[in-house]
């Protein structure tokens, strides 16, 4: 599996130029206090990682993988583990940016704010990874994106239509009630979502022909 993790991270490294530009733009904007969007950096990073699926597809990597020892399983494990590694690195960078922002503006570190940056980064990435990876594996990277948009529009559309007939404020109340357990719930839900997503992706990839 390590070989597949390396391959994906090396591919991200080869594409790093665009991430470095984003990275410096975020440092500048955050330190200037124009935006406080530190949590967006990990999400942008994971979007960059998702481009590895397009490179894989374009270069026939999936056929190559299928002929390697235990290739299909290890390649999927590699994608998920590499995503987690990248998330950790980028979240740490976000924390560093937050620290720089606070220090340079002579403010105190707010523990709540720091934890919010970390948790929102994790949750954002887990939602993207959990939904996008199986969809990309099933439909391919180009069609997968289209399906993703279709799904998002459907969910928003259904909620919009439902809100005309049903009072959905109970959902918001429910979220508000569990918010205080967020520190515990977000990591737990993230692990469960990632695991289910991994199992689905693996099943799809193992049955796929290239």
């Amino acid at each position: 599996m390590l070989g597949f993790i390396k391959k994906d991270l090396l591919l991200v490294k080869a594409n790093l130029k665009s991430l470095i530009i984003i990275f410096f733009a975020f440092i500048f904007l955050t330190i200037n206090e124009t935006f406080n969007l530190s949590f967006v950096l990990p999400i942008m990073g994971i979007m960059l990682f998702i481009s590895t699926f397009s490179y894989d597809e374009y270069n026939g990597w999936n056929s190559f993988v299928a002929s390697l020892p235990n290739g299909r399983k290890k390649a999927i494990q590699g994608k998920y583990i590499a995503s987690i590694i990248l998330t950790i690195i980028l979240t740490l960078i976000s924390v560093l940016i937050y620290y720089l922002q606070v220090s340079l503006n002579n403010k105190d570190i707010m523990m709540n704010e720091l934890i919010n940056i970390i948790l929102s980064s994790i949750l954002g990435i887990v939602i993207i990874v959990s939904f996008m990876y199986p969809i990309i594996i099933k439909f391919g990277s180009t069609n997968g994106r289209i399906w993703m948009f279709v799904m998002v529009f459907l969910i928003v559309g259904i909620c919009g239509v439902l809100s005309n007939f049903v009072d959905l404020s109970f959902l918001i109340n429910a979220f508000n009630k569990i918010e205080k357990y967020g520190y515990f719930l977000i990591p737990l839900v993230s692990v469960i979502m990632l695991y289910i997503s991994y199992r689905v992706s693996l099943k799809l990839y193992e049955n796929k022909e290239f």
Binding site: K7, L10, L11, A14, N15, T52, Y55, D56, Y58, N59, G60, W61, N62, S63, F64, S67, F210
Partner: peptide, 13 residues
Amino acid sequence: GIVLDNAFFPELL
């Protein structure tokens, strides 16, 4: 050992 037609490592590597 395998060599496939149009199937290899991504070309940025």
